[in-house]
């Protein structure tokens, strides 16, 4: 029970990777704030599964790209949970990983980059700022941001998405440098293609097989694969690790 009496915020936790991370924290006794944007029913379902797994859970709706919504969420966490030890920035702007129909560079408008920056960097920026006061009171505070192995190896050039994730890696390292002296650690987990998730549903078999063929462990990541390394970086086992990017892609990227 590595996270008993610890409170963990997971953004975008109503489905996919976020949901798996939330459940994994709950299974270690944590109190999980299941943040979601729209699907209240799904989020409540994940909260229920967190409780069933042995943790506490609270579902809070908030669009993490909105400063006001995030501030309101921080206030609610302060009132209802009273503490915050871990923030997992998992939410990202809706994106369809469809290698066959991805926009090629001349067709990617600047607005697409902006949208991904909003979803990746701006959301993380707002969440980190709003949660810092709560995190500052914890003796073992940690932030884990979800990046992508595409930053190091753009197997499919999703220009806007990957550029935003690259910026998130830079953002995280800077934050790690600044917050280290305050005892707050900041790391990234960089998964490869994760399946099954809604976002990856359009990725065709051929591409999956191409990635698998080049992956030493011979399969794609599952949402549950991502959860373990997130817990490692967030918890006591990762107490002396900060500013790192941990690739979770079966060895596709070795860095």
């Amino acid at each position: 029970m590595r996270f008993r009496d610890r409170a963990i915020l997971v953004t975008g936790a109503s489905r996919g990777i976020g949901a798996a991370i939330a459940k994994a924290f709950a299974a270690e006794g944590g109190t999980v704030i299941v943040n979601y944007r729209q699907d209240a029913e799904a989020a409540e379902g994940i909260a229920a599964r967190c409780r069933a797994a042995g943790g506490e859970a609270l579902a809070i709706a908030a669009d993490v790209t909105s400063e006001e919504a995030v501030a309101a969420m921080a206030e609610r966490i302060g009132e209802e949970v009273g503490r915050l030890d871990v923030v997992v920035n998992n939410a990202f702007a809706p994106y369809r990983f469809d290698p066959d129909r991805r926009a090629r560079f001349p067709d990617v408008p600047w607005s697409a980059y902006e949208r991904q920056f909003e979803g990746a960097v701006r959301a993380t920026y707002h969440v980190c700022r709003a949660m810092l006061p709560l995190l500052g009171r914890s003796s073992s505070a940690s932030i884990v941001n979800l990046a992508s192995d595409l930053v190091t190896r753009p197997s499919i050039p999703y220009h806007d998405y990957t550029t935003a994730k690259a910026a998130l890696v830079g953002f995280s390292r800077n934050l790690a440098a600044e917050l280290g002296p305050r005892g707050i650690r900041v790391n990234c987990v960089a998964p490869g293609l994760v399946s099954p998730t809604e976002a990856s549903a359009a990725t065709k078999e051929e591409v999956r097989e191409m990635l698998i063929a080049q992956t030493p462990l011979r399969r794609l990541a599952t949402p549950e694969d991502v959860a373990g390394p997130v817990l490692f970086l967030a918890g006591p086992d990762g107490a002396f690790v900060t500013g790192q990017v941990l690739h979770v892609d079966g060895g596709l990227v070795m860095a």
Binding site: S195, I212, L217, R218, R219, L220
Partner: peptide, 10 residues
Amino acid sequence: AHELAALAHR
């Protein structure tokens, strides 16, 4: 055997 283990995830 390893491929069978890997395929079992999917």
